[in-house]
Design a protein around this nucleic acid. Sequence first.
RNA 1: GCGAGGGUAGCCAAGCCAGGCCAACGGCGCCAGACUUAAGAUCUGGUCUUCAGUAGUUCAUGGGUUCGAAUCCCUUCCCUCGCACCA
Length: 932
Amino acid sequence: MANTLVMSEIEPEIRAEWIPAFESNPDETKDKLYVNVAFPYPSGAMHVGHGRTYIIPDVVARFWRMQGKQVLFPMAFHVTGAPVLGIAKRIANKDEKTLKLYGELYRVPKETIANFTDPITIVNYFADEYERVMKQLGLSIDWRRRFTTIIPQYSKFIEWQYTHIYGQGKVQKGEYPVRYCPACDQPVGDHDLLEGESAEIMHFVFVMYQFGEYQIPCATLRPETIFGVTNLWANPETTYVKAEVDGQKWIISSEAAEKLRMQKHTVVELSTLHGTELIDKTAKNPYTGADVPILPASFVDPDMGSGLVMSVPAHAPFDYIALRDLQEKGKYTDIKAIPLVTVPNYGTIPAQDIVEKNKIPNQEDPRMDDLTQELYTAEFSKGKLNDNCGIHAGKSVRQAREDVTREFTDERGSIIFHEMSQKRVICRCGGRVYVKILDDQWFLNYGDQAWKAQVHEQLPKVELVPAEVRAEFERTIDWLKEWPCSRRVGLGTHVPWDPKWLFEPLSDSTVYMAYYTISYKISKIPAEKLIPAVFDYIFLGIGDPTNMPVDEATLHELRSEFLYWYPYDYRFSAKDLISNHLTFQLFHHKAIFPDNLQPKGMVVFGMGLLNGMKMSSSKGNVFLLEDAANEFGADTVRMFLVGSAEPWQDFDWRNELVLSVKKQIERMWQIVLDSSDASGTTPIDAWLVSRMQQRIAATTKCLCAFQTRQALQEAYNGVVSDLAWYRRRLPEGSSGGAVQKEIMSEWIRLMAPVIPYTAEKLWKETGHEGLVSFAAWPVADESKINKSVEISESLIQRTVEDIQSILKLVQIEASNVTLFIAPQWKRHLFSIVAGAEDKRNVIKTVMADESLRAKGKEATDASLQTVKLIHSLSPELVSAIADGVDEEAIFKAASAFIEKECRLSVEIVSAEESTHPKAKSALPFKPALVIE
RNA sequence: GCGAGGGUAGCCAAGCCAGGCCAACGGCGCCAGACUUAAGAUCUGGUCUUCAGUAGUUCAUGGGUUCGAAUCCCUUCCCUCGCACCA
């Protein structure tokens, strides 16, 4: 028998046995359990953060497998999408950062990286690596079912899915403003940006001023301020263009003309016009009909909005200062600010108020942006429109803005103009990013109210772990709207009815859990035979199986396997996917599958930290999972990740803590082996067996609730501490009873889901046949629970602790301890107090008893002490004590032990028979102690 | 800003939903002792203050409810996640 545990030696042989054993087929004699995880996008190596995402489901899968369920735990790789295209391109361009990441951090061999100019090579390489590392970690996955999302059979499956979704009218063409890189000719997401990730798309209203036969659009976020416009601003150094926009004659900056084209407007430039040509002319306010002058302003940016701005000096600090500057030079002194909003804590002219209070000298003051923001926010949240605002007078700013915008766009020819909130938004290609309206785009209409209602109705039937995430799901269902589900570039499946598009990754990964159930069989069927009708039969039972490209027997087989496994029981994923993927898949399941095949449960994980910092490949703050497994062993990695936090909490990987987990596993190894030749019986055996039943029950209960950390506390720390007490209590010279063999067999099984390699090896070493992975989970045996022996041990333990803490305190040369056992009347009192409804007025109850009242003050004192004692004991223990515990017998039996533990001779005396003053303080379950 | 979730002793972290089993599980770190030639590992004990096993003051903050609050309600401050063309 091996004496030391060397993980790397035991792992390969066990792994070889496992891989075929975890191939899971339908077994009608057993209940099934289907768990799955959000499949990975294999564009890089796995770090320890990923590890937990797969290890927790594995622990759960292993637990249920031992509970006798037929468990399915499949895995596949999501290679749809664009990121690897970018990676391949950057590698082809010898981008240093990328080469460093893949060469140094992920340690891909040089000759392999050379082939990474092909995106498919990258995902295949890492998919293989994922599989290798997952196997190394002992994940009980059925690897036959592995696939990637770009194999032809899967594409056929996606086509089938969207045949239904599209057929139900849930995929529609739409217009949507997106961040767009003209150089790449495609939309850009956050991760495609070099700069400006925080920029948002802002939606301006173009307010149209009449200027002769032309219109001057002024971009504003606050159209309700139309009532306070005193003038327009034009930049005298800019050349504007006269243009026909959607058939109307406009004056705008040339930058604006270009942006309008991207936003689906037809723009024909007619002629140019110098800014100075506009200055001091007047334009007509479309709402009030008033003529407003156009004033010069160098701050007007032609690259922002239309290049022309309406001025509301009463409410816009910039406008106020610009006008003030001009008026101080004696110009335009007839213009007066027109206040239109009243807002608490600001003067009649809020812009003037805030500028003067802060003593802003000029427009260049850096505080201007903050002041503007502050005032805008105050007015938006608390402002009300004044009487000079026509039909909008008295409305809140929030309401008026909404109403005025609608009025302008519906009736007054205004358009919504989209603009980035920052100018420096730069694509990875180096080009500037603009807002573009895509008109050819396909959208999944998650905004469909009927669809939302169905999902809302379904959600309560889905078990969510932890329960707190339910609110977030509810919110997400409400919040989702049109989702652009197609892309021009990337890997993936073509949209069947419009093949120039591809489904984007979040849209081709919503019902693939169904595909797992048949993936290993369907991959043998040529894709061209997999027409939608075939999937209709397999998944929905619709159609005539005798008249299909796939033969009937095969169809029956696929259908029945699908029905065996589906619906899935639990899906595991990190919490950041609630707001998209996890909710999407509820929508799609609802749209396609009948009620009895809807998802049954989801378990949402917290995030991973490394040494207290967020893990991030790009920042290099990662610890590769494979390195961890090699350095510490798979079981150590598993036990650490399971034990460091409950699944839904964030966890922190720290190497120094991991090391102590390794020692814990080694300790278990040693304890089990040391117990293997135990024989005979000891008086304390019954206690150990009793405790073990409760450990089994608690561990089982925790695992059923996905409390893997708590389960591990019970199964490991709990058992270890019980064993420690057991050994302490053994008679001199004894190494324990044969009962330990039974305990060890149970312990190995309790730990098997978490540390399967070690457990598997120990299972064999202790003479068991077969794999522990498939052994029966221990069941707590009620008949072995022995309350009275647990109570005696508890009394002994507490007393020994008390003696030792006194010894610590007094530091005297003691040789003897006397235990004064509480007298009968105090036991009587204890049960009265324990039975009292209201512990506050317990004295009254006690005094109602003749015999106790006779004791007088002694009884009242004892009552108070008893109340305190009872509060410090578990209710279970309290009622046991109230029922009567023979303390004298317990201490007599344990006196040798106490003498050994405390190195004192023990004397047991009934408190009644002593005159020692201390003896009076004896209480039931708390003997008075005198050490001398 | 909006939505969701959190803040517990030197650190990590249980407890909170179902208020008295709470000076508060467990681990790390630290201190002392045992073992050892020594170190490491391991084991034992200690680790808010005080103390013959008692008591006092603690669970972000400030209030409130209650005989009693880490736990329930409200204030404020701080942190994490999500906020959409995407893994």
